[in-house]
């Protein structure tokens, strides 16, 4: 066994690529949940974003338009969820599961004529001098644009939630919608925007998968990434930077276990495949054990229905 075959630098680079779809979807879902809405349809919006982004990129020849298409697709699908949960006051858990079913089905129908096509390649950052630096170069200065965008998005969400009035209103709606309503805030409108944002982020995550990480379209290609994103939000206790850490940790363990296998580590591969999930549970337990810290961030109204006339 030769552990030196595992290069920490390339490990970090691959884990960022593997984590970015989950990170994008999770940061969107964080905003949704902060507004007091639980949308379990992330998987459906992701896969719908994967195909709509793919179609947009292939038709236009531009990866950028592809990502816009992916975000638009995810947001479009989330409109169904908005109608059901915000206007028809349907149960959010069941609506979210239905959304996943719908997204998987619709994406497959749309994607029939797009299997086996190569999407246009995305540009990588290449700054003369910086990108060629050892260690720092590959880790910091030579990714595709979306990785920088995803990190900027995390920073943006953090700033929005903690430093802006709109963010304060969003959190207020998630904490106590009746009080927020009494103060004159438009509860439904805030949630509507949050859900659209969440849908767009999930769609973007899906498009990252079909345009950069894999790059191709295959039916059902998200294979559960949306569920992991949901888990990462809770894992990150609804804090943007912790969500980033959670996503990278999850991606990191996944990549590490594949690398360990390649150097010939002799643990059953099936057991190694479990490790990302088990480690997620362990870290969650450690973090939640401190009761004061953990429960503060959970939006009190998560999953509850709101009707103005109440």
């Amino acid at each position: 066994m030769d552990f030196s075959a595992i290069s920490p630098v390339s490990l970090i680079v691959s884990l960022m690529i593997a984590s970015t779809p989950i990170l994008l979807a999770a940061i969107g879902e964080l905003v949704v949940e902060k507004s007091g809405v639980l949308n379990l349809g992330v998987e459906g919006m992701m896969i719908f974003g994967a195909i709509s982004g793919f179609i947009a990129a292939v038709t236009s020849g531009s990866p950028l338009i592809g990502f816009i298409g992916g975000a638009a697709g995810g947001a479009l699908l989330s409109v169904l969820f908005i109608i059901l949960t915000q206007y028809l006051m349907a149960n959010q858990v069941a609506s979210g599961l239905g959304l996943t079913m719908m997204g998987l089905g619709l994406s497959a129908l749309l994607g029939y004529s797009y299997a086996g096509i190569k999407p246009p390649a995305s540009a990588h950052l290449d700054i003369a001098g910086l990108s060629d630096l050892p260690v720092v170069g590959p880790i910091l200065f030579s990714h595709d644009i979306m990785i920088y965008f995803s990190i900027a998005l995390v920073a943006g969400v953090w700033y929005f939630l903690n430093r802006t009035k709109a963010g304060l209103i969003l959190r207020a709606v998630g904490e106590n919608h009746d009080a927020a309503h009494a103060l004159g805030y438009k509860v439904i409108r805030v949630r509507l925007l949050a859900i659209l944002f969440g849908g767009a982020c999930a769609g973007l995550g899906g498009a990252y998968l079909s345009l950069i990480r894999v790059p191709q379209w295959t039916e059902g290609m998200t294979t559960g990434a949306g569920w992991i994103a949901l888990a990462i939000v809770v894992f990150g206790s609804w804090k943007p930077w912790r969500v980033l850490i959670g996503a990278y940790l999850f991606g990191g363990v996944t990549i590490l276990q594949l690398n360990l296998q390649a150097v010939g580590v002799n643990i059953g591969a099936a057991y190694l495949s479990m490790t990302p999930y088990i480690i997620t549970i362990i870290v969650l337990v450690v973090m939640s054990a401190d009761k004061k810290r953990a429960s503060i961030n959970a939006p009190a109204m998560l999953g509850r229905l709101f009707h103005a006339s109440k």
Binding site: P21, T223, A262, A269
Partner: peptide
């Protein structure tokens, strides 16, 4: 590398990357 799935494009891509890096 055993991926314990017949079909998971993301994981298959990760596995390919891991092997290439090594």
């Amino acid at each position: 590398v055993w991926v314990y799935t017949w079909f998971d494009p993301g994981k298959e891509a990760d596995a390919a990357n891991a092997l290439i890096e090594q």
